[in-house]
Design a protein around this nucleic acid. Structure first.
Lengths: 116, 116
DNA sequence: TGGACCCGTAAAAAAGTTGTTACATGCGAA
DNA sequence: TTCGCATGTAACAACTTTTTTACGGGTCCA
């Protein structure tokens, strides 16, 4: 398999994305089929702006993918679906991942986000 | 296998515990062998109070276990070691876990903690 | 022309996490 | 008794995440 494990930093991002009840619920719901934002919001009983934010976090982590489509009656619909990820978490797997971890440098950098 | 998957809430707690570079590093370090708090703190270059806090979070999630022991020269030492967990994260596994998820009820309940 | 859908974003309050510094305890050895 | 090393905890500042409310845009149909 050419299946590369994520880097330590990527792994942290994925875990952080999943470590929230609402986002877990979102992924679980999307696992039963793709859906568009407004419908999904009604489905799980959450405001659209809030859902929007969580979807962005999940997509940034690579756990879901969104695609803008045009419905037959011309409305712009943003559909999301789960990407098929698979993470196996054990102590030794984590030890591996930790090797490629950006050190939590207490440097007085510009902020928490870095660019390439 | 009699290996029960964690409940949705427990899973979220485990993921949250791992979703931090420092804690990932802690688990990774402990995966190479048990260690006591002060030594571990020097090892990974972190203040003890901070480490203490992260260890608590990891232990609460059931990912590590601590035990207070007496060294030969009579000092109280708190040793930590990884417990052997194994989580397989896929979309469908998460869908399963989400079934046993405490709803983010905005109810003004007595508190955030529930008892059986 | 107004409604009913769809999309997004911005600002601000509330809550939680992370990290510091400072303090208090206990044991054994010099 | 003072030093070194071990343990813990409390208070505080800085930061990030979560959530709300309010606003902007678009298309189609009656």
């Amino acid at each position: 398999m050419t299946k590369a494990e994520p880097t330590g930093d990527d792994l942290v991002e994925m875990l952080a994305a999943l470590a929230n009840p609402l986002r877990l619920l979102i992924v679980a719901t999307l696992a039963n089929g793709r859906d568009y934002v407004s419908h999904l919001a009604r489905e799980i009983g959450v405001s659209r702006p809030l859902l929007h934010m969580h979807l962005r976090r999940l997509e940034a982590a690579g756990l879901i993918v969104g695609s803008l489509e045009l419905s037959e009656d011309g409305k712009a619909m943003k559909y999301y679906e789960v990407s098929d990820f698979s993470l196996h978490l054990t102590a030794s797997a984590l030890a591996e991942a930790a090797k490629t971890l950006t050190r939590p440098d207490p440097e007085k950098g510009p902020g928490s986000k870095e660019q390439s």
